[in-house]
């Protein structure tokens, strides 16, 4: 489904060129639960951004379902994000001043969907947030905010959910709850690509990519822990 071949990403700074990714080849099959691990600066976030079409590679080919999307224009990539991808961030990235249900409605607004409120409420209910639908981010706990963000990523029925350290800002118990959600989603067949630097989080995935200095240094398929 996803195929990166010879992907490089360079950043140009005053201190010189930073090679964030160096000739990476990765294939991800539909339905996989991939954990990307590595030190900070290893290039894992850059890889996630490129996979999620938030960023473009400097060189190489990114093909999604057989289409080379690496060199498509901004509008095409925006529509891909809108229709096929969901994003979950470490810092939740909820819009201030919008209630939980409005956060979830956002992708639907850009899709031009009709029954936004209804669909958004369903998505919240799925994450047991029915009673928090009209709460604002500052009225919610970290775990609840992250669940709102997950509901937002799921509301468009995405093929892939990209998560950048989704438990990084949460306590252990909330983190476990969030991981349980991802694990369930994976069982439903949604492809998940998740960044973490905690082994016990990565242990819940079906495959671990370890990155270092812009390279994938190990790629381990593993049997899933029963949760």
């Amino acid at each position: 489904m996803i195929e990166l071949s010879k992907i490089s990403k360079d950043y140009y700074t005053e201190a010189g060129t930073v090679h964030a990714l160096r000739n990476i080849d990765v294939k991800i099959q539909s339905g996989e639960f991939v954990a990307i691990m590595g030190q900070s600066g290893s290039g894992k976030s850059t890889m996630l951004n490129i996979l999620g079409c938030l960023d473009q590679p400097t060189a190489g080919q990114y093909s999604l379902d057989g289409i080379n999307v690496g060199d498509k224009d901004d509008t095409y990539r925006s529509i891909l994000r809108r229709e096929k991808f969901g994003f979950v961030f470490q810092s939740y990235n909820l819009v201030p001043r919008l209630s939980a249900v409005e956060q979830v409605e956002l992708p639907l607004i850009y899709q031009g969907a009709n029954n936004k409120r209804e669909v958004a409420l369903e998505a919240l209910a799925r994450l047991n947030l029915d009673d928090r639908a009209h709460h604002f981010p500052q009225q919610l706990s970290g775990g609840q905010q992250q669940r709102v963000a997950i509901a937002r990523s799921l509301v468009v029925q995405p093929q892939v959910v990209f998560a950048d350290e989704p438990t990084g800002a949460l306590d252990t118990q909330s983190g476990q709850e969030i991981m349980k959600i991802f694990s369930d989603l994976s069982k439903e067949g949604i492809t998940i690509v998740l960044i973490t630097h905690e082994q016990h989080i990565a242990d819940q995935s079906s495959r671990i990519l370890e990155m270092s200095d812009g390279l994938v240094v190990s790629d381990t398929l593993r049997a899933r822990d029963p949760l």
């Binding site: 999620g52 938030l54 901004d74 509008t75 925006s78 529509i79 994000r81 809108r82 229709e83 994003f87 990235n93 909820l94 819009v95 201030p96 956002l106 992708p107 850009y110 899709q111 937002r152 990523s153 468009v156």
Partner: peptide, 16 residues
Amino acid sequence: TREIGIRRAVGALSKD
């Protein structure tokens, strides 16, 4: 700016 980034991430087009 950050809100704009969030909106772009969830699929807002430049023209939106």
